[in-house]
Design a binder for these strands. Structure first.
Lengths: 220, 220
DNA sequence: AATTAACATTGACATATGTCAACCATTCCG
DNA sequence: CGGAATGGTTGACATATGTCAATGTTAATT
């Protein structure tokens, strides 16, 4: 499978012409990659670390729209308006490849598979969004959190990371915000899952002890 | 702007080679265009009428994921898996252009703008999904319904239809389902808006009497 | 290492919205 | 046209989750 940028420890990805097209960039925890309203120039492939994206409404409410980890692509929803509609912020030290979008047309003539790949990525994101709609529209708090944990788990699995034990780089408040729940509700459900032996949490470290039961909960 | 298929009364769109690439199809009210799990072969451009898409969970819960009107494109989230993940059903008599997806690669070599167009459309959809996340995650019932009505209004406006007076082709139950609300709640809010003179409803006909105030409500 | 700030947890209580039920209005179809 | 089916409305009441507040814990900073 074609990759815009290989996630990993920092070796240069061989797929694209060097230099012009992509540029590496590192972010400290809390640093902003782009803000809502800024002109759209680049998409970003995450090499390592994690990034959250969020929208702000006129009246100041915030909606976290996603958490993104190594191998994922950021900024695609900005294509249509030419401006980023959300802001992207590093949740921990992170590295990204900056890919200039205005060179995409050119690039995909040289590399026809890129076009196909792009459709795949965007389609994947649409699919994910639909699952999220289901979560936000129809699931209760337990189901939401279980679904969330399993989704993270799967994404780590794809990236050859441990999928039963990982670090939640986002705060409870971020999780709640993303899932349409209050921070306190997230805490309570974590405690509940902990009591029932489903997960073991120590601060932001989490271990999933019973994937099957979690799946059953996620389904309802 | 390039169009896959011109919405309207049925004249053949001149943009694409006839025949091979696209085929017209008409649907009666309630008829299914595709079902979840079916192999993905086509995307569909709606020429007239309206279509709803919905997901079903293992335990039988349904989530309406969208309502689609003339000029909009259906099926893009199926690209990545090769199967439709939701089902699409006509809300009223409708006409669509069927566009074979396996000819897209070929086609966009002939018509380079198509590729660009495709990115635009998908990006637009991602953007819309994010607004929906905000709605489902952060807005209360009144805000949701106001947002919904305004969104429909805007889409009709783009298509040169009346944007203050239109027909809701979907049931209250569908609207509620889509917005993460009970059918009864939707009814109550409609009644409330009606009492306050914001809208005039007679069954499924609706007239928006005060867009500005609706906008204020939608924002919170 | 001590101090401070940010984050997490838990309890008590409030409330928006869901659920259940009865009834009314439209639309569909023979 | 009439009767049945589907869809819409309203009320009474239940409840999941939010809000507010107090306290504990972890991480950042000097």
């Amino acid at each position: 499978m074609y990759r815009l940028c290989h996630p990993g420890d920092g070796e240069e990805a061989p797929d694209l012409p060097h230099g012009i097209v992509k540029r590496k960039r590192t972010l400290k925890r809390g640093e902003t990659l782009y803000r809502a309203g800024e002109p759209f120039r680049n998409v970003y492939a995450i090499r390592y670390g994690s990034v959250k994206t969020s929208l702000v409404t006129d009246d100041g409410r915030v909606q976290v729209t996603g958490f993104h980890i190594a191998g994922e692509l950021l900024g695609l929803s900005a294509i249509v308006t030419g401006r980023y509609n959300c802001e992207a912020k590093a949740l921990e030290a992170a590295g990204v490849c900056e890919v200039r979008f205005d060179q995409f047309g050119e690039l995909s003539r040289q590399l026809p598979s890129l076009q196909y790949q792009m459709l795949q990525i965007m389609s994947q994101e649409l699919l994910h969004n639909q699952e999220l709609m289901l979560l936000l529209g129809k699931k209760n708090a337990k189901e939401r959190l279980a679904t969330y944990l399993l989704n993270l788990s799967q994404r780590f699995e794809k990236r050859a990371c441990s999928y039963t034990r990982f670090n939640l780089t986002m705060s409870r408040s971020d999780i709640g915000n993303y899932l349409g729940l209050a921070e306190e509700t997230v805490c309570r459900i974590f405690s509940l899952f902990h009591e029932e032996g489903l997960v073991t949490t120590r601060s932001r470290q989490i271990q999933l002890n019973d994937l099957d039961r979690l799946k059953a909960i996620a389904r309802g």
